[in-house]
Design a protein around this nucleic acid. Structure first.
Lengths: 358, 358
DNA sequence: CTGAAAGCGCTTACAG
DNA sequence: CTGAAAGCGCTTACAG
């Protein structure tokens, strides 16, 4: 639509259905339109839009007037195609709604922002196929880099992408069957310290309720539990260990079973935040006092009676470390893939210092 | 790099620095490379890659072999440019790390996924300038639609974009000075019900501790408080109301002040989740029992002593409703902007049913 | 069934 | 200081 003064006119009412018909993103003006209206060349518009030097003030003014009048905004999709860098990073995690991933995502976002990149976010829902689908969709969009909290344990599908130079860092759990950067919490050491803390407070019969054994964090924490028990020369009984999905029903049943044994555990080590919450519910219903240490901090843990002793990991630090490493890969300052382990911190609040109830 | 059989060779070690120098995204093969290797035309490769009909099995096999050998993956950046739809939606919220936004983001993501779109996520950090910067960056990327939890109260900067047909839905707080779709919780009604609940349990001196008065949700909830008090013919005293930032120090001071008055409040209505948490901390330190109802549910609220009575909003429903409306805008099935209000739910757990301590 | 040409909206490399 | 041409990697419209 061009009126007789040569000005492109924009209809007052947005014609929304147009967006789907043509390739012109609604009907947004392009640099070509701006150039035509201002009576200059395309490259001059590009110079003004990008603040490049070499444009007389008068020309610049004319171009700027044209930009404002048409409501022009540079199409970064086109820019990206030509420049070869999308200035975006992909983050694939288990579930955006899980409070553990909030601070992690935010930390990745902040580092990306400092490098001028946007964040594309996706939840794998702990499904390996969905993880792969998401990761490959992000590769197809040519994100500059990828931060992945893996759901699956076979990442060979990423090999061509890594070869092609897609920067990638795995977080929270290692990559499977490929050599890649990974940033983890010290799950083994954290769990060992938490269990040792219970032992130091007189417990010997200690239960471990954890996530599915296939998950790296779950098996590492179990290994930490076993190491602490072995260090104290305690023979672990099968009935003290329960692994599986972390939904409340399963965890509740496991906890109640463990506590109803003839010779029950006097303390429980909970394998992650979801497990801890359910175990607390069950313990408050018991007549007997049972000590508890949980892996992962939870909100309001200090306000419960007793306060909940936890092994805390620093989710924000995990995200920050991974994202920084990603951008160092992109700088080219990095050589071989590394495995970085972040320390955990035992926070004592009461539940882990309860003596055995005998 | 082409060897003597005409095959493009890929170096074993990824030359990562290459990514930044040229426009070829690392050195990924393109459809042209695939076509050359397979000895077919570009369009034939496009047909195979997109599963279009009209390719003989033998040709398809040759193309597929070439794709696999080269590690080709379609560049969606280029596709997007030509097709005019980026199959992505932008979500701008206050802080990804805030637990309220986790379920909301996830809900938006799920709806986007059902429509084949990815989610680009950004935190405004409650800063109007940063909100605008993010929103406009997303517009430049030509996202198909935008879900915005606004930090600022003037969104006229979005007018050219709306005119150009960018689908937009505001959530949690309304848009400022422009006409746009908005999905809100019934902040007024929820607060009024919560306060009425305290009045029904015998309270007359009820405090209100809320967020900054400029924030829409904060003022609506205060309005609900006032309405409930007026319905009960209670004259509100100035000392019962405290508005401001929600950091723990400010809220703690406000709560303690309110409780140390000669004739102190017997109940507190907390304006949001962050306020509630701090108020709980202060109340547990008091010798006197003070009733509490909080706006927003918080995790473990049922495990505290007493359980925390809250006015819960459904964050996931807010996100889902907004995203669905966004895609209906894109369908073209929507006319005028609307304001949708979602109900809240009073959850009684004990703290709101405590009688006045006299 | 197949493919060459044009084009999406920018930037790059170059010439005037 | 300014701009025409070529190109980024795809898809579209069309011709054979």
């Amino acid at each position: 639509m061009v009126d007789r003064t040569g000005h492109r006119t924009v209809p007052e009412t947005p014609r929304r259905t147009d967006r789907l018909s043509g390739p012109r993103y609604g009907n947004r003006p392009t640099m070509k339109d701006v150039a035509a209206r201002a009576g200059v060349g395309l490259k001059t518009v590009s110079r003004v839009v990008n603040g490049e030097p070499g444009v007389t003030p008068e020309t610049e003014r004319r171009v700027q007037e044209s930009i404002d009048a048409l409501g022009f905004r540079r199409n970064d999709s086109a820019r990206v195609l030509r420049k070869g860098s999308t200035a975006s990073v992909g983050l694939v995690l288990e579930d955006l709604a899980d409070p553990f991933y909030g601070p992690l995502s935010r930390a990745v976002e902040e580092v990306a922002r400092a490098h001028g990149a946007l964040l594309i976010n996706g939840s794998s829902a702990e499904d390996a196929d969905r993880e792969q689908e998401l990761v490959l969709a992000l590769c197809a969009r040519r994100v500059d880099g990828l931060v992945v909290i893996p759901a699956g344990d076979d990442h060979r599908y990423l090999e061509p992408e890594l070869k092609a130079g897609v920067a990638t860092v795995f977080v929270d759990r290692p990559a499977g069957l490929i050599d890649a950067d990974v940033v983890l919490s010290d799950n083994f050491g954290g769990a060992r310290d938490g269990v040792a803390h219970l032992i130091a407070h007189g417990h010997r019969r200690i239960g471990f309720i954890g996530d599915m054994p296939g998950i790296h964090t779950a098996s590492e924490r179990l290994r930490g539990y076993r190491a602490a028990m072995e260090d104290a020369d305690i023979q672990v009984e099968d009935a003290w260990i329960s692994l599986g999905v972390t939904d409340p029903e399963r965890v509740r049943r496991a906890t109640e079973e463990m506590l109803s044994h003839p010779d029950p555990v006097t303390a429980v080590f909970a394998g992650n935040n979801r497990v801890t919450v359910t175990v607390i519910r069950v313990l408050t219903e018991q007549s007997r006092q049972v000590a508890l240490v949980g892996f992962d901090d939870i909100e309001l843990a200090d306000l419960l009676q007793p306060g909940v002793t936890v092994v805390a990991q620093d989710a924000a630090a995990l995200g920050r470390t991974a994202a920084e490493r990603l951008f160092r890969q992109l700088d080219g300052t990095l050589r071989a893939p590394e495995r970085i382990e972040l320390p955990t911190r035992l926070i004592t609040r009461g539940s882990g210092e309860l003596p055995p109830a005998d």
